[in-house]
Structures are given as C-alpha cells and as structure tokens.
C-alpha cells in the first residue's frame, strides 16, 4: 500500500483532499417528499390556525369596530378594560362553574356509565348506542330540543314536577337555574364521549389481575379502586385534557338555549368573545378576551402536562 502511494507521489499524482463535510445523498428528494406530505397540512395550519391566532393577538391591541376599515392603536387598553370591567368577575365565575361542573360531572358520570356498560347485560349494545348517540348530534339541535323539555309551562320537566306536586323552576328567568340547565344539557350531550373512551380502556384491563385480586379476597369495590382506577390513569388524564378544552370552548348549546342570559347568567368567556365581537361589534376587545382565554387554556394544559401527568402510571 505504501509503495503504491510512493509511486503515485513520484508520478505527480496527489490524493484528493478529504471532503470537509459528508455530502448527503439526494437531500432534495427528502425535502420534496416532506413538502409533498407535510406541506398541505403545514399550509393549512399557517393559514387557518397560526395566522388567525397572531392576527387576533394584533387586533387585541386595537380599538376596532368590526366592519370598519380603520382602527386605533390602544396597546393594552382592551386588556385593562377587561380586567377592570365590573362584569368580568361574573363572567369568570360562570366560566369556572360551568367548566368544573361539565368536566367533573362528565368524568364521574362517564366512568359510571362505562362500568355499567362493561358488564354482561341484556341489551348492552343498544344501551351503548343510546349513550353515545347524543355526542354525534348537533349542539344547536340538542339545545333547541331541550328548550321544549325545560319549558316551565309546557315542558316534560314541568309536567313531571307537577305530577309530584312541585312547581317548575324558572329555568329561563333565573340565572342560577339557567346555568344548571345548560350544564345538564351539555352533560347529556357529551357524557357519551367520556363513557366511550372509558369503556375502551376498561376492556384493556387484564382479567387475570382482577381474578387474582378476587382470589386474594378483594371486594369488587377494592379491586376497582386499587386496580382498575390506577390502570385507567392515562385515560383519565387524556379525558381531563380533552374535556376541559372542549368545555372551555363550548358555545352552541348556550347560543341555542339562552344566548348568554338571563342577566348574563350563562355568559362564559367563550360566549363573551362572540357577543363582544359580533353583537356589540368591538372586535379589538373581543380579540383581547380571546387571547386571555387562549393563555388560560395554555396554562391549564401546561399544568396538567407538568404536574398531573407525573401522577399517572402508564
């Protein structure tokens, strides 16, 4: 080998210098493939998600009547207005109550239904369909339907209460009853989703673990609490994140049933964004509320990821 090199040197042939960087093979092909598969999605995300998000952030610094071609820069004015507005505390309270009731209630009811539907019962298939069906219905249609159910004069609810000698609550004129009404309807519509996901998770719980626990003398309650619930941890975590996000963004049922009333008793932050943006026409203020809600959602998700997930065993 050394002789060959010596001979080449003598012939005036020198070895090429080693490449500074190893050249990638056909990198443009990879890029082309990436663009082909990811490009459309990335473009859609930029146009329909990230651009509107940043636009909304920009609009939140403007005093802008929706529809007007001109606006005025007000910096953080809209944010200051929202934090100092006397109705803000009320809207936040309604949002918190609605969210806790729909997320907490939905998880408990959904799990209970899933446990029930996981048993070998007659008509189980039909029952599962009935429980899940409302989830796929339109929120507006569900809201309009339940308006009849809760009608204090002609509704089924009033008729049932009259049958036992009670008067119907003033669902449409009392803010507290109105909030309870939309919570009940929201739960009815969405509990099927939670039940469905829990049901799928329950079916992955190894039967031998439960049999072993039974042989060791564990009661069904203890087996559920000590074995099933911990194994459902990842599902519970997943559901907590998704149902919380969808609850904070709920709009259709409130719009169909109460339009945020009476007395703003069912005005959540999401509904306030719509009211301010499209009814009052204050697009800048509405964008500021949307940004605040966005930050709240980010923080809540971050906290869930950071702290709650650590307690989940996969």
């Amino acid at each position: 080998m050394s002789t060959m090199v010596e001979n080449r040197r003598q012939m005036g042939i020198t070895a090429p210098p080693p490449p500074l960087r190893r050249r990638r093979r056909w990198p443009w092909k990879s890029w082309l493939l990436f663009l082909l598969f990811a490009g459309p999605n990335v473009a859609l995300l930029i146009v329909f998600t990230y651009k509107p998000l940043l636009q909304s952030l920009y609009y939140s610094t403007l005093q802008w009547n929706i529809g007007s071609a001109t606006a005025r820069q007000v910096g953080l004015g809209n944010y200051i207005d929202w934090f100092t507005d006397p109705t803000t505390a009320h809207v936040v309270m309604v949002t918190v109550v609605f969210t806790i009731a729909t997320v907490g209630g939905g998880m408990v009811l959904g799990l209970a239904l899933a446990v029930l539907l996981n048993r070998r019962l007659r008509g189980r298939g039909a029952a599962r369909t009935v429980v899940v069906a409302p989830y796929v219905l339109s929120g507006v249609a569900v809201g309009l339907l339940w308006l009849f159910v809760f009608d204090p004069n002609f509704g089924i609810c009033a008729a049932l209460l009259r049958a036992v000698g009670l008067a119907s609550p003033d669902w449409y004129n009392d803010p507290q009853w109105a909030l309870l009404m939309v919570i009940v309807v929201y739960l009815w519509k969405n509990v099927g989703y939670v039940a469905l996901v829990y049901l799928a998770a329950l079916q992955t719980v190894p039967a031998d673990l439960l049999e072993a626990a039974a042989l060791d003398g564990a009661t069904p309650f203890h087996a559920f609490r000590r074995i099933v619930l911990p194994l459902l941890g990842p599902t519970t975590f997943f559901l907590a994140v998704t149902t919380l996000l969808s609850s904070l963004q709920s709009f259709d049922i409130i719009q169909a049933m109460t339009q945020g009333g009476p007395l703003e008793g069912t005005t959540t932050m999401m509904y306030q964004i719509y009211q301010e943006g499209f009814q009052t026409g204050r697009a800048g203020y509405s964008s500021a509320v949307a940004t605040i809600l966005f930050v709240v959602l980010l923080l809540v998700t971050f906290v869930q990821m950071k702290y709650v997930e650590k307690r989940v065993h996969y």
Binding site: L54, L57, Y59, L62, T70
Partner: peptide, 12 residues
Amino acid sequence: LAACGGPAVGGS
C-alpha cells in the same frame, strides 16, 4: 402574514 389585511390603523 398576520399584519396583512385587517383595518388601517390611525384613521378617524
């Protein structure tokens, strides 16, 4: 991209 479109700022 976000700055494109929307209202003109500063008009009366």
